[in-house]
Nucleic acid binder design. Structure first.
Lengths: 148, 148
DNA sequence: ATATAAAAAGACCTAAATATCTTTTAATAT
DNA sequence: ATATTAAAAGATATTTAGGTCTTTTTATAT
């Protein structure tokens, strides 16, 4: 559904939101190690988010990534939009061009419920909501690792 | 979500179910042209379905593809299983290995609703159900084309 | 039996996603 | 100002999905 790039981005940004702050920036190496993600690849993805001001960074000693007040409020859909685009949320489940409510493919009525539902989740939830979940222990407590 | 291979397969099999029968088999060329799909690529995919007895075929003059009684009753999930595998329906939305109800990722509770919902749709609907939809005109009437 | 038609099979090609490695730029502390 | 540190940027490699082309096999009609 979401590309690897996209879920890497989401996990990384939540990790940064959870563990970092403006005066405790998180290095790409730490993120990569803790989340068990390919560092250089991840680096490209975060670069893109920084460019779009979804994520903040500074270079040099004690540099790294962090998220500011505004970034925490950004909805997940925005990150998806930047990395994967929004085509999934408009596309027919059977890949037909002209599929729509008035001209539906044989799967349309069932599929659209799912597609719209997902859209709503991603359009509603902000980065901070995920960070909060992590902090509440509803989700992985220590980190967003793949392993433990 | 579903790979191109997989939606090509679904559309092709519905086309065959709709337009063909044991004594009016449908050639790969017709399928490719009508559905605007790459013929040779599609050919591979259908081969696989034939091998799994989801679809029937015969070679030679007046040969082609058709589906028998039993095949029409096969659930969509089976086709998905053969072509894409079922990992999507077990995988965490954020790509974490150990995500589960008791150990959820920060997106789990919301995501699982739709993952399960989709699973149910595909596990419930059979090929014939889609063919029926096409015949009822609820879906594209003439064919499953990408264009008209 | 033979020609023919159509799927099966095999080899190969292309593009996109994913991943790695190297060099450059820019903050910071000394 | 200089050295150091860490992100940005660039170049390149690998893998997977998607697609094409050619040859082989097999069923049918003559």
């Amino acid at each position: 559904m979401l590309s690897k790039s996209c879920v890497y981005a989401l996990r990384a940004i939540v990790y940064v939101g959870h563990n970092g702050s403006e005066n405790h920036k998180i290095g790409i190496k730490e993120i990569g190690e803790e989340l068990d993600l390919p560092v250089h690849f991840l680096s490209k993805i975060l670069q893109l988010l920084v460019k779009h001001n979804i994520l903040q960074s500074t270079k040099g000693p004690h540099g790294g990534f962090y998220i500011n007040e505004a970034s925490g409020k950004i909805k997940l859909i925005r990150i998806i939009e930047i990395i994967d685009g929004l085509s999934f949320f408009h596309k027919c489940g059977l890949g037909m061009h002209e599929c729509s409510d008035s001209h539906p493919c044989p799967l349309h009525d069932d599929f659209i419920v799912f597609r719209e539902g997902l859209n709503k989740i991603f359009s509603t939830k902000a980065i901070n909501d995920l960070v909060k979940k992590v902090e509440d222990g509803n989700a992985f407590v220590r980190n967003l690792n793949t392993k433990n």
